[in-house]
């Protein structure tokens, strides 16, 4: 047995500190009784109280929630179909269209959708944001569902068919329940991706609608206020819960996103 040297755990630990310290600092300052993000003064819940009366922020949060709900619902249905199709059939175009939006820099998807909507004569706003979010969430759901299908025992569906089930019935009563954890994990991922998206939303929102990330961007760009720490901490908490649930349902789901 080789002796484990100490430098590896130490280096690893330092990288974890690098990953987590910035986020913990944001959370800590959200409870700090000072308008400046420079040193600890004392504990307060003031910034969370301010949030409750921040009209623009509440409006943006409502928009984000609505967008994420609609976009994740539609992209889950379409993404499950795409994942199933990619698993079952030998396709060329669909896998390319599913993977390309994930592979290229986000800004390209953002600006091409901007061109598309404007040339169609659409007013940018909630609808254009939702349509764009579905387009980039779909692929993530498809990948998760496909990997779930790949781990499934094919003979179960075949058995159902042998026992006289129609293809649709076999899918609904056998395949779908078996891949359900993957579908739900995909839906949670789509919801998280949508509620967190900044770049594509930035280009497709126009002046008509704001979302939480857009609102945070505006506030951070103009002047950093402690309310940003509070809303950031709440958003992190929400993401954390969603992602932990998704990872319980489908351990492979998270890695496909990164």
């Amino acid at each position: 047995m080789r002796k484990n040297s100490l430098w590896l755990p130490l280096a690893g630990f330092l990288v974890y500190v690098f990953l987590y310290a910035p986020l913990l600092i944001v959370v800590a300052f959200s409870f700090n009784d000072s308008r400046l993000n420079s040193q600890w003064v004392g504990f307060t819940l003031e910034w969370y109280r301010v949030l409750l009366h921040h009209e623009a922020m509440l409006q943006a949060a409502g928009n984000s929630l609505l967008i994420a709900l609609v976009a994740s619902a539609v992209s889950t249905v379409l993404g499950t179909m795409a994942g199933f199709a990619m698993y079952r059939f030998r396709l060329r175009v669909l896998p390319l269209l599913v993977l390309a939006p994930i592979a290229i820099p986000e800004i390209l998807t953002g600006v091409s959708l901007l061109l598309f909507f404007v040339l169609l004569g659409m007013t940018l706003g909630m609808v254009s944001i939702i349509l764009s979010h579905i387009a980039f969430c779909l692929g993530f759901v498809a990948i998760v569902v496909r990997s779930r299908l790949a781990g499934m025992d094919e003979s179960l569906t075949e058995a159902a068919r042998d026992l006289g089930a129609t293809p649709w019935c076999a899918f609904r009563r056998v395949t779908l329940p078996l891949i359900m954890p993957g579908v739900v994990a995909g839906a949670l991922m789509a919801f998280t991706l949508s509620i967190d998206d900044f770049v594509i939303t930035f280009f497709t929102a126009g002046v008509g609608a704001s979302t939480l990330p857009l609102q945070i961007y505006t506030m951070v760009k103009t002047s950093v206020t402690p309310e940003v720490n509070a809303i950031s901490s709440l958003l992190m908490l929400l993401t954390l819960v969603l992602i932990l649930v998704a990872s319980k349902l489908s351990p492979s789901a998270l890695r496909s996103g990164a």
Binding site: L19, Y20, P22, L23, I25, V26, F29, N37, T192, D196, F198, P213, I216, Y217, V220, V224, V228, S232, L235, M236, T239, L240, I243, S247, L254, R255, G257, A258
Partner: peptide, 17 residues
């Protein structure tokens, strides 16, 4: 993976602080 899933802007903003 966890910090990767937290909001991108927040992770950038943390460094502004």
């Amino acid at each position: 993976i966890l910090p990767f899933w937290s909001n991108f802007l927040i992770r950038v903003y943390a460094w502004m602080i």
